[in-house]
Write a protein that binds this DNA or RNA. Structure first.
Lengths: 226, 226
DNA sequence: ATATCTATGTAACAGATGTTACGGAGAGAA
DNA sequence: TTCTCTCCGTAACATCTGTTACATAGATAT
């Protein structure tokens, strides 16, 4: 294992650990670094996933390849990213798609048993790994909340309340262009404009350029409950 | 700690461990069992969450209480369930809602430090805890996929393909009433009926009572990609 | 100044979905 | 049988949202 592992610090699994300690940790850990050329097959859909991958260099994708030959990219990872971390410890640990390299890539693989051993020997690693999974859960929860907003008005209300909490002010400065905001909400830009006008006409908000003022906070919060 | 901990076996954290070992594990672990009366306040929204809770008995809820006084139940837990497991190891570990008991309840609390210690000493506990988080991630991922289906036809196609894989047959027996299925998809029952008829008229499927036959599998899969 | 480009507002139309109401089929009870 | 209840299909209508097209304001470059 004569290898430069400083890139591991870019990964949340080792971010809190200094290079010297990382080197020491990995010396006794059975790891494998594999080099892939561009467009190489890293793992096939349905294959057993018993190891976690850390991208040391390059970029990879997880693709769903359909019988028709069409492929859809499910996820994209680059240097420092980790993949497979939730799969190895789940009951059904099969890759949900085909893993391929988009560029030449170098990947450090950690076997499930190695991870368990690292967790037991290095509290910091254990805590990092648990944080990794936990943050993922919270992120997914937030995404589900957003997706659960059915109508455009609900999405807007949710967005405004979030911004209100972030900015601590009923008068909100839009952090992005309306085009970007609409895209983030998964709706069309004209639909966003139209609904904002409706809400102004109904007295919910005031608008001027990229400033929106919440006229009735309670109305907004109440609306999200019906 | 003279206490009957056999109920812990109902929890995924200890399910794989026999009662004797559980008792031994917990003897040296600093845990706290707290008894709550009905409708008691267990934790307030925004409060720091540095411990995980395992419900030994009773039922609790996480509620969002709005300024208007309206409350919405965010989650519901009962005997054997665990809460707070993703919060304690995340950066922002504040309760997202108010935790209250719906019935008299007994809760075993494990401090973050205790969990780390259990993970280090008991590989089985470590693996169970990691599985718990991992399964949650996969479940949320699936939920997001479902929610991402925009149109009713997409939801139906996704549902049919899932059932096709489950049942291993192009002729699918609906596992629930259409009313339930519609509710699960987040749409109205008549809307589901109407769209099923449309799909039949367009030659995608055949239907008879609670049986649906996929006439063109490829059409369905292709459709989900556009 | 002029031209150009981008973000935005606006309107008209089409399509998708929710809402509501009604009737029929089938299961189970009296 | 007859009644009742649930599930389901169906239709008419209302509403929401996407689509497309066009106009304008402001920024920027030449």
């Amino acid at each position: 294992m004569v290898q430069d592992l400083s890139v591991l610090q870019k990964s949340p699994l080792f971010g809190t650990i200094n290079t010297h300690d990382i080197k020491k940790m990995m010396e006794n850990a059975p790891t494998r670094i594999v080099t892939f050329s561009k467009d190489a097959l890293i793992a096939e859909e349905g294959e057993n996933c018993d190891r976690l991958g850390i991208i040391l260099s390059g970029e990879i994708e997880i693709q769903k390849i359909y019988a028709s030959g069409k492929t859809v990219t499910m996820a994209h990872f680059k240097e420092g990213n980790i993949f497979g971390e939730a799969l190895i410890f789940s009951k059904v640990h099969l890759y949900p798609g085909t893993v391929v390299s988009r560029t030449p890539a170098q990947i450090l693989f950690l076997q499930k048993s190695t991870i368990i051993s690292l967790c037991r020997k290095h509290p910091e690693f254990l805590e990092n790994f648990l944080s990794l999974l936990s943050e993922r859960i919270l992120m997914l929860n937030k995404k589900i909340k957003e997706l659960s907003m059915g109508t455009i008005r609900q999405k807007i209300a949710y967005f405004l309340l979030e911004e209100y909490e972030k900015q601590g002010n009923l008068t909100i400065k839009l952090p992005f262009s309306k085009e970007i905001i609409a895209e983030h909400m998964g709706i069309q830009r004209p639909s966003l404009s139209r609904e904002l006008v409706n809400m102004r006409e109904e007295g919910w908000i005031d608008m001027e350029k990229n400033i929106i003022h919440i006229k009735d906070l309670q109305q907004l919060t109440d609306f999200l409950l019906d």
